[in-house]
Nucleic acid binder design. Sequence first.
DNA 1: CAGCCTCGAGTTCT
DNA 2: CTCGAGGCTG
Length: 686
Amino acid sequence: MSFLERAAALRAQIAAHDHAYYVLDAPTIPDAEYDRLFRELQALEADHPELVTADSPTRRVAGRPLDGFAPVRHAVAMLSIRTETDTTAEGARAFDGRVRRELGLADADPPVVYAAELKFDGLALNLRYEQGVLVQAATRGDGETGEDVTQNVRTIRVIPLRLATSSPPPVLEVRGEVYLRRDDFEALNEAARSRGDKTFVNPRNAAAGSIRQLDPAIAAQRPLSFFAYGLGQTQGWAVPATHSGVLDALLALGLPVCHERTVGTVEDLIRFHADIAARRDSLPFDIDGVVYKVDSLSLQSRLGFVTREPRWAVAHKYPPQEMLTTVEAIEVQVGRTGKLTPVARLSPVFVGGVTVTNATLHNASEVQRKDVRVGDTVIVRRAGDVIPEVVGVLPDKRPPGAVPFAMPCTCPVCGSVAVQEQGEVDSRCSGGLVCPAQRKQALLHFAQRRAVDIDGLGDKIVEQLVDAGIVRTLPDLYRLGVLKLAELERMAERSAANLLESIERSKQTTLPRFLFGLGIRHVGEATAKDLARHFGNLDALMNASIDDLLAVEQVGPVVAESIHTFFAQPHQREVVEQLRACGLGWAEGQGAGGAAALPQSGKTFVLTGTLPTLSREQAQAMIESQGGKVSGSVSKKTSYVVVGADAGSKLDKARELGIATLDEAGLLALMHGKALVAQPLSIPPD
DNA sequence: CAGCCTCGAGTTCT
DNA sequence: CTCGAGGCTG
């Protein structure tokens, strides 16, 4: 393809995406992909100026007023900011270097002072205040002419309709970004979903769509937010000498200004960039990156503009959190409980800082809702929750002949019938332990740290042991010898010995660990502990009737039924017998009631963050040894929240509910203060 | 019966 | 960590 043809093709594609994005508010590709096309065209035109046409999208900032919104000619053009291509810390230095060169500064001259702020992923607006009253709000549009969206903007609570001053300037235009907080976005989509309406792909589109709502009553229901970041036209206003001064002044006038900003030298910019990168996922809103501006307004005017972009500002972006990739296959995984989970195998993409190759599709109805097919081009996101997600499909890019995904009627591993219970979204393999996949998962579950803890028995080894037919059941693990392990690949003498040693060590365990390890449905760690405490020994539990089980706290009909059914199976009793015969053992007691009241009996603790010296397990063991309970979520019944470094949402919840918090020292003091049993004073850090 | 609290189960990558 | 579902409480 010639350069001429390529440029024409890019222009056509960009024009089509522009229409979809700006006019229809229904984007067809992620922003990063659009940027890539745009940059390719820019580069092509830069190398071959003869290719530039008058209607090229690079000649204007895309956008067209919708029918129904009056055009607004901006008194001062709304420009875009150049994007620094280097996404490493060096990007800030490159910008500093360019600024210093333009200003004719020598290395020995003092550093330039910059302001740094966040680059919001939203929609730029110009707010015009006359005599202190909001008279007009306009979108950027093509930079020269935008759309009058005053009515909708008036509904945004954080935007003052009147400036907070007794002597307002005749004209003050404020520029900023409309955006949606992530939680507001989720709530908005949730509401749309429950009404059966179309949902928005991301907060940015939801914000843009809301501002372009022709009906202000609908816009008013959209929980939009706004941050001011600059000025347009001003008359009769004493403009501060610096950008940071302008923002402070706007804040004083009652306009929302983001407090995540800083002023300083290029070193401070680098620190800011790194600090925000680390916290990006936990910010309540989406950002593209950060923006650096020369702080002094007089220096800004000395620097001026190159074509349409200011030389005194740059956007320093972060790796995109959304990318395009293709679905190579949709495979079905079998979980420990037999649950069949469709997983998209993706052509590897770098998104949100890691390379993603897999994304769960959860269940059949999820696949159906998104209509993901093999060969599809999909948008993949890796946002705050870290786990990659297929956001949606680009139907235009679907290869001909792609067929809808169908959940198999049989287990892909063992061929047993897959059943979908009434009212459930999940399908399950009915093969039970006949199914090698479930058997492997059962073995891994039994061996995991919180169960009997067989160090060194990971998924690779289990895979081999089961596939080679060496291990079929839990007791088989205890009949392994050096000879059998030697049959495995990549199993040297030393590691075989280590594994056997771990298996030997796991024989000495506790009843709760053992029970949890059996993998009875609905019996997790907490329930296993309750059962062990109530019955005291395994035989009492195995012979318990449904009614006996219902007497255990936290056990209702569903859980009781599950336990009863489990031990009614001769095969499971056999497994337990054999495990005991192999030497598995624990201290058995007499059951309920025996335990004397411990100092922390009835108290519930929640751990969050990383404690300075104690591991989570150590802290939990310490609390439990004094009769306290460790739970995973904060509620008003929680007695204490133990807070470590980088505490998450649980601390917020604790503050909200007014729950007492402890740090590690406080926890230790509480434990020692009333300790009946001496606790070790020196705990080795791990 | 509704709403809250807690637990179980599943998930990705380094 | 988050979602969904089981169990308990008012």
